[in-house]
């Protein structure tokens, strides 16, 4: 332990409440939630008609995001409907990924049975979090597809009995659709977890010098991954609402 690199794939359990496991990634998720909700609460109450720099920046970002989403979805109404989901995915994941490299995360912890358990661990390095987020995105996409196209038309995208080629294509579509759950969750988990491991290894080989620039790079990667998750959700929503006959 003292001289080697310890990489733990799963989030460490710190305790349990009524049989419900409390992991360090769960605690950090709550911390980030408190930060985000606290900021939103105080920011939302201090909005002014003549905006300050922060308000102007946030308004600019919101307007830009909605305009971009309206361009992708080809509908201002749909863009406004899905904006909260896409923006929340981005903000939650981005803040988690940035906070990850703040002092104390991963370094503050408790010793339990000669094992060091960090109190905080980025939820994006816990597959439970990324899988839950992927599931939410997945169900949103599927439900939107069914709501916009109708059940039979949407299912008809995947179950096509008109021709053998169509049937196979539908089957491939179905598998790739289900595969999104895995790709969504493992992409985010893998990127952020790998970044953490890389920083850990760098700190082992060249401490004090190498980790800092790598951490800067990983913070950038964290933003990119948050953007990727949010954008893919948006694009898959777009794919789900496209009429199969229009698409071909």
């Amino acid at each position: 332990m003292e001289s080697g690199i310890s990489v733990v794939l799963k989030a460490e359990q710190l305790g349990s409440v009524f049989g419900f496991p409390i992991t360090n990634s769960l605690i950090m998720a709550w911390l980030v939630m408190a930060l985000l909700i606290g900021f939103a609460y105080f920011f939302g109450r201090s909005l002014k008609l003549v905006p300050g720099k922060l308000q102007a920046g946030i308004e600019w970002a919101f307007e830009g995001a909605i305009a971009y989403m309206a361009g992708v979805l080809e509908s201002e109404k749909l863009a406004r409907r899905f904006f909260p989901l896409v923006a929340s995915i981005f903000l939650f994941v981005a803040v988690i990924n940035e906070i990850e490299f703040f002092p104390g995360v991963g370094s503050l912890g408790i010793w339990h049975a000669s094992e060091f358990l960090p109190i905080l661990r980025a939820p994006t390095t816990d597959l439970n979090f990324t899988l839950a987020l992927a599931a939410i995105a997945f169900f949103t996409i599927e439900i939107t597809g069914i709501a916009m196209l109708g059940f039979f038309k949407y299912v008809g995208k995947y179950v096509n009995l008109k021709s053998p080629v169509g049937f196979v294509v539908g089957l491939i579509e179905l598998i790739s659709n289900l595969g999104r759950l895995v790709s969504f969750s493992f992409r985010l988990f893998g990127n952020i977890f790998a970044g953490e491991v890389m920083v850990l290894v760098a700190a082992y080989f060249l401490p004090y010098v190498l980790p800092a620039p790598l951490m800067g790079f990983e913070m950038f990667i964290g933003l990119v991954q948050a953007l990727v998750f949010a954008m893919l959700t948006l694009f898959f929503i777009k794919l789900a609402i496209v009429d199969p006959h229009e698409a071909h």
Partner: peptide, 11 residues
């Protein structure tokens, strides 16, 4: 470390 409790909690 997949646990449905944690999945649910994160969702």
């Amino acid at each position: 470390g997949i646990d449905w409790h944690l999945l649910l909690a994160q969702a």
